[in-house]
Amino acid sequence: MAVVETRRLTKVFKRGNVGAVVNVDLETREGEFLVLLGPSGSGKTTLLRMIAGLEDPTSGEILIGGKVVNDLSPRERRIAMVFQSYALYPHLTVFNNIVFPLKAQGVDRAQRQKQAEWAASLLGIGHLFSRKPRELSGGERQRVAVARAIVREPSVFLLDEPLSNLDAKLRASAREELEQFQKRIGTTAIYVTHDQVEAMAMGDRVVVMSQGAVRQIGTPADVYDDPADTFVATFLGSPPMNLVPLADVIVGFRPEHFLPAGVAERGGAHLSYRFQISHSEYLGAELILYGTIQGGALHQKKVISRIPSTHSAGLTDGSAHTFAVAESDVKFFDKQTEKRTAPRSLS
């Protein structure tokens, strides 16, 4: 039985359709870290808020622990949520913030103390108990918010971009910490983000959303290596997958799979092309090459290559070289539906 399940869940807004959700079917697995990934306005936050009970669905069902919860208020759903702003209660101390959900449940004083200490020790914030939220750093606030969410051992843990308010450096370490933490407590988590790096790094599975619909659900490797459609293919990866429209089909391959012939050979069939470099960007560890293909089925198409800097010798602007991509790395998309289709011959 899935912890959280949605069946044809739909939300229509009166004004405009930014953030709307269309017919979403979703099923979490026990203890997994599920990431909802999509650009802003794709409906991922709306979906999370419907699961939390903060937003009423227009149609469809939400199930928690196998029970339809559409008519239950947030407090009756046994969920916990970490908000983007953390939403710490500014007038309460850290300790009182953490025990607030327990008080609401009517847990007795001694038990409250015990559970708060347990949650705080998991996150290393015991020394902050008597502080007020405004006296905390961004990272500390995030931990308090997480502690408040886990303290009553919820059945599911909802997180709405909890790292977006941290600066870049802190975000990387907080990301790792949060992921480890979730593995340790083993509670199912649903995590909303627009940051693909976060999604790839943390998710057991990633749900890619766009315009209210789920485009693909799969492990990070699935969605990256086998994108279900052109949206997923270009939304993940930086620079995005090369998409080359041909007469009847769209051909896609990742820039890092399009390499100088000598570097690419690893066995298996390859497609070789003459690649005319127009300009390049040196990014330290790697080099991004922009150029066009000369000759063959992809003649005159603009593509990007991304190679390790260690293989950059001789790849100057204006020069032409033989590049290759493994046939297994080339994906095909239907021109009308933009969905994946069967591979075909390109020669």
Partner: peptide, 8 residues
């Protein structure tokens, strides 16, 4: 909303 989710 946090209060609602927290069960208040």
């Amino acid at each position: 909303e946090a209060a609602a989710v927290d069960g208040a």
